[in-house]
Design a protein around this nucleic acid. Structure first.
Lengths: 250, 250
DNA sequence: GTTCTGCCGACTGTCGACAATCGTCAGGTC
DNA sequence: GACCTGACGATTGTCGACAGTCGGCAGAAC
């Protein structure tokens, strides 16, 4: 359920200000405060709730109700919902509103297959990019892997899955193609939604770290085929783990 | 410029009806008429205008003006524009409205690189799918290629580019992964927008048919490496043709 | 008992209006 | 002349209200 924790910071229309007053002396300390539209903030809030599995699949999200809970008009709510529909986190039925998307096993296979497409290509491009690109990528990935190790010790499922996905997002980002980033972020969100709403056993921490470590090693060594196979295996394994089944043609 | 050719079919809010009255006898002849929201129709109209290069890059698209031209309120126009912003066909500046997206050479390389990611993966999956999948794919692709030949004889640039892209869309669709389809359709639209607003010389008809023919042959034969290389070469060539430059790392 | 019809409540799709924001430009100050 | 300041016009972001559409249910017809 949606909680009314979020509040519109200033009444009335238009922008918002999180005014950060500073001492008169050091003006350089001015922090640029968040300038986001109401709809963007609602969208992010809802997106996070979906991603973290706090909303059940199929749960209807009525514009009126959300608008009341958040004390805003329906217009920005509507806009936010539309964004999430385009990201396939919500499904929309004509004249009957939107509801939280449900993912079937076949959806999960599609998502992981599409992720494989993008990650593999990104990995190839990073290797094409030469030693410099490879080094930057491996550094960034190792940093994420370190944070994954910490999260594993803490045992917070959502944090673990979030950082796991961040690892893959970092890999894609290292290819330096914003179109790939955009496409991947949609798949990443769907993946997290799937993981976090299924309360299945996570792979052991060592497995997770090892699998990602293999990717980094192959990348660092510039072994293209090893890397591509590792990515494919890693994703296939994760998908079969989630669906509890073997890969299907569709 | 936007023209006021489009008209809202029924005044007032809600749905539309293209009422198709039928003879009382054969009720099975009932055609389900188009049920699209106003915003969807506006979105498609604008999308087509952008794709066909009828709107200059950078041209501002004020909500008020479009709403007046189309004789609707700003709400559905706003919704339509937002959809196109998410598809990266328009760019939005906070409090200053949206304008037609401009594509730099680096954008074009990104687009073609991302297309390469998806097409290559789709091609691989089609081959993985076995002879049946391959046969269906090659049949569909040959049909599109035939239509490309006809369009080439007619010499309509926009039709040629549209069918060219349809060939690639068909290839991706043959992999049977709707996520890939969605991602590709965005890239496809951007590609067409780039092609149709640049008035550069098209490759000769024979070149175009031959290049696509090579893809079909490799696919039909199940020669994975040949196919992947052909896709990569085809796209790289097209991108360098569009940008008039060599591939850059970014 | 089954099938159809018409009503009901809830919600969306659309509308017109208002307020905040932005870029521009004239006017004042040093 | 260069710089800052304030007002102006245009446009977006947001709001409240209304009409259309949908699923469900009671009641009539057979």
């Amino acid at each position: 359920m949606l909680e009314a924790t979020w509040r519109r910071p200033t009444s009335g229309a238009g922008g918002d200000r999180g005014e950060s007053i500073v001492a008169v002396s050091g003006l350089s300390g001015l922090k640029t405060f968040e300038r986001k539209s109401t709809s963007d903030r609602i969208s992010e809030e809802l997106r996070q709730m979906i991603i973290e599995g706090r909303l059940r699949p199929g749960e209807p999200l009525a514009e009126t109700r959300i608008a009341e809970l958040l004390d805003v008009s329906r217009a920005p709510v509507r806009e936010a919902l539309q964004q999430l529909v385009q990201q396939k986190l919500l499904v929309s039925a004509r004249n009957r509103g939107v509801s939280v998307a449900a993912f079937t096993a076949s959806d999960i296979w599609e998502i992981y297959d599409a992720r494989c497409a993008i990650e593999s290509h990104a990995a190839g491009r990073i290797i094409d990019g030469g030693p410099g690109t490879r080094a930057r990528a491996t550094d960034a990935l190792r940093a994420v892997l370190d944070r994954l190790r910490i999260a594993l010790k803490q045992g917070d499922r959502r944090k673990i899955s979030a950082i796991d996905l961040e690892f893959h997002t970092t890999l894609v980002a290292s290819a330096g193609n914003s179109r790939l980033d955009d496409a991947y972020s949609i798949l990443s969100a769907q993946t997290l939604a799937c993981i976090n709403r299924l309360e299945i056993a996570l792979p052991s921490g060592e497995e997770l770290v090892d699998e990602h470590g293999v990717l980094i090693d192959a990348l660092a060594a510039g072994e293209r085929e090893t890397l591509l196979k590792a990515i494919n295996d890693h994703l296939t394994l994760a998908a079969s783990h989630l669906t509890g089944s073997q890969p299907s043609s569709n």
